[in-house]
């Protein structure tokens, strides 16, 4: 088994593991971590695709590599936004939870508090 295929299998395992974390862990921060695991698993799949595209004197296809770099930066920005939301929610309510009914009391002054 080549190292590329091995990395691809790790990627597949990471996607599964991260997905489990996203579904099973109720804490937002742990979910964000799990999202990052899925993300890196996806990037590894790009990675083996790149490695298997070695040609023209290059050890790996540059196009998927560039996509991974773009993806890593976007994933970071998404984590930052999600963390900021989680922290703000914690400050406001004293807990960080995604429960749909968390404080869904109807607002008493103007439902549309714009």
């Amino acid at each position: 088994m080549s190292s590329a295929t091995l990395a691809g299998l790790v990627g597949a395992a990471l996607v599964g593991l991260g997905l489990y974390g996203v579904i099973a862990d109720p804490q937002p921060l742990r979910k964000i971590l799990a999202f990052n695991l899925i993300g890196s698993g996806v990037f590894l799949v790009f990675g083996i695709v790149a490695r298997k595209g070695a040609a023209a004197g290059l050890s790996a296809d540059p196009v998927p590599q560039a996509m991974v770099i773009t993806g890593i930066v976007v994933a970071f920005a998404a984590s930052a936004l999600a963390v900021a939301l989680t922290l703000r929610l914690f400050e406001e309510t004293g807990r960080a939870t995604l429960r749909p009914d968390a404080g869904t009391k109807p607002p008493d002054d103007g439902a549309d508090a714009e």
Binding site: V49, K52, G53, A54, A55, A56, L58, A60, D61, P62, V63
Partner: peptide
Amino acid sequence: GPTLAPQS
């Protein structure tokens, strides 16, 4: 696999 390395 298919690749865009030569075109790059």
